[in-house]
């Protein structure tokens, strides 16, 4: 067992972990951030993608020890403002779940342009692949703000989606690229605000 500290979305998280702990397990079990999904555990599906200091990795194929002392951004870090608790799923009607985000009381401005584009282009169905898709897309668009559709397809080559058939995901990538070009500031996660603001 070993003490490891990793900064996750700006929060310093320390845990006493087994050396074998994957970054994915550290994020989900030690930090309690379950937005990062475990789809295959063998670096094939991309559901577990997160950023380590601006570089995208598959967190299921990295030991927590390999990133000890460094900063990680997960899907939750993209829209800090929206971290207010959402009502429990079972207490919401399906109509409520599928209603536009605005109707759920979410301010679209809180979302990262990639998240907005995924919502508007209907780029998810079950949503299991979405956290990884969004993280890889964001990371790629920050490097290449003017991609072609083919570029976007290649960028998400390591992310599998069993639902959408990818067309809408590529649409979302193109839409997000356009938004990020016109509002460069929006491409970064909103700065953390003190809790009493919410």
């Amino acid at each position: 067992m070993q003490d490891v500290t990793i900064t996750i979305n700006g929060d310093i998280v320390t845990g006493t972990i087994d050396e074998r702990t994957l970054l994915l397990d550290f994020i989900r079990d030690v930090a309690g951030k379950t937005g990062t999904h475990n789809g295959c555990l063998e670096a094939r599906c991309g559901c577990c993608s997160v950023e380590v200091e601006g570089d995208i990795v598959k967190s299921c194929n990295v030991l927590a020890l390999q990133v000890a002392g460094r900063s990680v951004t997960t899907i939750e870090g993209l829209s800090k403002e929206r971290l207010r608790p959402v009502e429990h799923v079972t207490s919401q009607s399906l109509a409520g779940m599928y209603a536009p985000l605005e109707a759920m009381g979410a301010d679209v401005n809180d979302l990262h342009p990639v998240q907005v584009a995924f919502h508007q282009c209907h780029a998810l169905q079950c949503g299991f692949c979405t956290p990884g898709m969004v993280m890889v897309m964001k990371n790629y668009l920050e490097e290449n703000p003017e991609p072609t559709r083919d570029d976007v397809r290649t960028a998400i080559a390591g992310n599998l989606c069993r639902c959408t058939g990818y067309q809408h995901i590529v649409d979302a990538g193109m839409m997000a690229a356009e938004t990020m070009r016109s509002q460069p500031d929006n491409s970064r996660p909103a700065p953390a605000r003190p809790a009493h603001d919410h």
Binding site: A43, G46, S49, V52, D55, I56, V57, K58, N61, V62, V136, N139, Y140, A155, A157, G158, N159
Partner: peptide
């Protein structure tokens, strides 16, 4: 080669 996240590591 591989994919974007694998190339990081």
């Amino acid at each position: 080669l591989a994919d974007r996240p694998v190339r990081t590591m």
